[in-house]
Every structure is written in C-alpha cells, then in structure tokens.
Amino acid sequence: MRRYIIIGAGAIGGAIGGRLTQAGLPTVLVARGDHLAALRRSGLRLRDPDADVTVPVTAVGAPAELELTPDDVLVLSTKTHQAQAALTEWVDQPVHADGRVLGTAGELLPLLTALNGVASERIALRYFRRVYGVCVWLPAVHLVPGEVIVRAAPSTGTLHVGRVPAGTAGPDDHELLAELKHDWERAPLVVPLPADVMPWKYRKLISNLGNIFQALDGGSGDHRALVAAAVAEARNVLAGAGIPVTSDEEEAATRANSFTVRPVPGQPAQLGGSTWQSLARGSGSVETDYLNGEIVRIANEYGLPAPVNTRVAALARAAARSGQRPGDVTAEQLGRDLGLAEAP
C-alpha cells in the first residue's frame, strides 16, 4: 500500500492529508511551528459545510523523523516560493528496504506538485526524476494552527494529475496514477488523469491572477475590472508565447461535475484565497511572483508587454514586506496605483 507524505500541511496539504487519513490511507503530514505542535497535540480539525471533525494524524517536522520506503509518494503542497527549500530538504533522503539503502528520494520516489502556478514542476525536475504535476481545485483555508476549513461538498476538490513532461510516462507511471486515483477518490477527491496536465495548470494560473487583488483590498471593493485587465494581458502573453491553455468551455464542463462551494457553519460566506491567507497570517511573503510574476517572466522572455501584472506583483512584494493586511488599500486606490483609474 502506498504511503502519502504531504510536504506542507497548510490549507491544500492539510485538506488532502486529512481526507486521506480519514479514508484509512497511510499518510504523514509535514508541518512546522505552532501548526505542527497543534497537529501533534490534538490532531487536525477539519471543518466543511457538513461536518466539524478532529482527525488524529501522523505529523512530523523534518524528513529525519521518517524512514522512507519505495512505497512512499511525496506530495509537495507548499507555496511555490517555498518549494526550492522543501525540495532540497527531501531530495537526498535515503530510501530503505530490507535493512538496506536502495538510493535517494530524488532517484526513486514519485513527487507530486500540488500547488499553484506552473513553475514548481521545472524546479522539481532539477531534483526528482519522476515528477507529476497537479492542478489543484480545492477551496480550503488555513488560518488557525491545527485547523483547515474546506468549503467544498460533496467532494473535497478536484485534482488533475499527470506526468511531467507529457509523453514521458511509462508503465510504472500508469500504475502509480491508477493507484493514486483509486486511493484519492476514496477521500473523496475527484482525480482526472489528462494526457497533459500543464494546459490545466496554465488555465488555473489565469484564475489565480485575481488572488492578489482580493488579498490587497480584502474584498472591500469591486476589483473585477482590475482582474479582467490582468487576465486579458495574461491571455495575450500566453497566446504570444504559444503556450497551450485548457479552454474555458472544457474547464467549465469539468467543474460542473466536480464540487459545489458552500458556506461553512460559523465562518463568513466569503473566505480569502491563498494570497489573502498569507497576508492575513502576516507570513511576510506571498506567492504572487509565481502567479502574476509568471506572466511577467513569460512576457519578458518573449518580448511582450505585461505592465499590469508587473505592477501588481511589485505591490504584492511591498505589501508582504511591510506587513500590510487585507483591506488596507481600496480597489479604487489599486486602480490608480496600476494606472487603470484616474486620480481624483
């Protein structure tokens, strides 16, 4: 039986790891600080639209606390800007069987990249031979140590999974993906296995471009026009670079058979996304450089303009450095800062 090691048990990793544990699958959550202490002390509190349960979990703070085996699957679910440090911590860990070391995690173990953006796969391939991209549709929130709020029902979320790069999968990969789909759909998660997962991840990247606008204005104003400008610019950049993106129609059809976002008792009807959560926790960093900043990188590489995403990425960095909280600026001020609205 596979054991799933969730590296980064925050909102996404905590939701996945908690659900896998509930389904009776061997699972280890890797966390740190107060969150790790809470998991060890009391377990993981999972709150969703229909239930509020505390799940006893196995939690560790570092790879030295585990003995890896060939049946382990590593699931990277940090933020993208934290991926490099996590990968270098795990890549050279020994993999054991029958009292001997077979090799390292990077040589032998599959690694799933369950995080936003499209950069983590390239980063991971520097260290791990078998990398599987995951396009994450899972509305979860982690603000309190030891607790994750999942706003989806009846399934917890949808995770498209595929070998990266596309076309390199062999029999071992197909076997692993079939096992993973069987296991994770018990969680319950919906797990499509596209031939190429990256067009799905680029479409999700487009959706995530609005994260920083929600985080900065805290939902206090109407930032839809600003997001639309960033998205239109991104679509032009991706088209100019010749990067395939899953169509809106295909995405909508898949979402219709996925899950429904519903309020969680005792929580506001609207809870922020991953960038909002980073500012709300005062983490000191955000992943915007790998979301809006990814569009900037591609634009720079192909000599294309991306002024809106360039400016909002700079605002995100400044907000994280200064400890800015969601709602400290208005949508109107953001529009002026981005040159998308006239100053009064």
Rank of each mutant, 00 (worst) to 15 (best):
I5Y: 02
I5F: 05
I6S: 04
I6W: 00
I7W: 02
G10M: 11
A11E: 11
G13S: 03
A15N: 05
R19H: 15
G24W: 03
T27P: 13
V30W: 06
L39V: 03
P49N: 00
D50E: 14
T54P: 03
V55I: 10
T58D: 13
E65D: 11
L68C: 07
P70V: 03
P70E: 00
D72W: 04
V75D: 04
K79W: 09
T80A: 15
A86S: 05
A86D: 01
T88R: 15
E89K: 10
V91N: 01
Q93T: 04
Q93G: 02
A97R: 13
G99T: 02
V101A: 06
A105I: 00
G106E: 02
L109S: 01
L115T: 02
L115F: 00
V118M: 01
R122T: 12
A124Q: 04
R126D: 15
R126L: 11
Y127L: 12
R129G: 07
G133R: 06
V136C: 01
V136F: 04
P139L: 01
A140N: 06
A140S: 14
V141F: 10
V141K: 10
V161Q: 07
V161H: 11
R163T: 08
R163H: 12
P165D: 11
P165Y: 08
H174N: 13
E175G: 12
A178E: 08
A187K: 08
V190Q: 14
P192K: 02
P194H: 09
D196A: 09
P199L: 07
W200D: 07
K204A: 09
N211S: 08
A215I: 00
G218K: 06
G221K: 05
G221Y: 03
D222K: 10
V227I: 12
A228S: 11
A229P: 02
V231S: 03
V231P: 04
E233M: 00
A234L: 04
L238T: 05
A239Q: 14
G240M: 09
E249F: 04
E250W: 15
S258W: 06
S258P: 10
T260D: 14
V261Y: 09
R262S: 11
Q267N: 12
A269E: 15
Q270W: 15
Q277G: 13
S278Y: 13
A280K: 10
R281P: 05
S283M: 15
E287L: 01
T288P: 03
N292R: 04
R297P: 03
I298W: 12
A299V: 03
N300G: 15
E301Y: 07
E301F: 10
Y302I: 11
A306H: 07
P307V: 00
R311P: 06
R311T: 05
V312T: 07
R317W: 09
R325Q: 08
R325K: 10
R325H: 14
D328E: 10
V329A: 08
L334M: 04
G335L: 04
D337W: 14
E342M: 05
